[in-house]
Design a protein around this nucleic acid. Structure first.
Lengths: 120, 120
DNA sequence: ACATAATTTACAACCTTTTTACAAGTTGGA
DNA sequence: TCCAACTTGTAAAAAGGTTGTAAATTATGT
């Protein structure tokens, strides 16, 4: 996300100042928390945001508080992002989450080793 | 809305200097408060106007005042805007309202997976 | 395999908006 | 002035949306 508060790629468009998000030209209705979460993640595109940082900044929770609230909100956000939810919001196990720019899925290349080629 | 105080799209026309509003070529009779509300919203097309801002600017109410007056006026305005009322004036839950340019409703695309096509 | 972490579902509490109805206030004309 | 029509604000009920948590399930790393 740039300093203008805009993010755009092939599928997703985020306009922070106008609080508008769309996926494939389709407007998304996000709740405040969902929006804040996406805003914070996307504003730090590519960076890992630790759970405690997110819980602190968005919820004002201190480290001690044990909750699954963040996870549930991540889930709701991913769901609203539809097909691409999982690819935009990546889980860093044991650490937190990271927003990632859309990457065209790679075509899988089947490589058949000649050494193991079926002998018909 | 431009600096000329004019707004126009496929269905709605707002002329602030002349205090004229029409929907589908049909003149609309708005009360003063309704007009002020529409004027303020449309002048800030695309921007979220928080409740407290609207209540302050249009009613001179301070933050402390708890009232449903704004909501009721929004309702009356939407109603007069007819079919498009809801699409022009968007509710931002817990925040305020936003005027949005008319958007052609998306045609839904029915996609029948070949995998599940009925076999006649 | 184990312990730990994340995902997912469902639900209840809470809060906000919508809607209806009414009464008070205002305006303009007879 | 008085009336009728219109405007406006408020109350209250209904409807709707948001959020956090619990609990079961699934995934991950060692």
């Amino acid at each position: 996300m740039s300093t203008t508060g805009l993010y755009q790629d092939q599928h997703l468009e985020i306009n922070l100042p106008q609080a508008m998000v769309s996926v494939d030209e389709q407007r998304l209705i996000l709740t405040r928390k969902e929006f804040e979460l996406l805003a914070m993640l996307s504003a730090n595109e590519g960076e890992i945001l630790p759970r405690n940082v997110l819980l602190d900044r968005i919820w004002g929770y201190s480290e001690e508080i044990r909750t699954r609230t963040l996870d549930v909100h991540i889930r709701r956000l991913r769901k609203k992002l539809g097909l691409y939810g999982d690819s935009y919001i990546q889980t860093i196990f044991g650490v937190g989450y990271r927003f990632q720019r859309f990457r065209e899925p790679r075509a899988l290349i089947s490589y058949q080793s000649p050494l193991f080629a079926a002998t018909a």
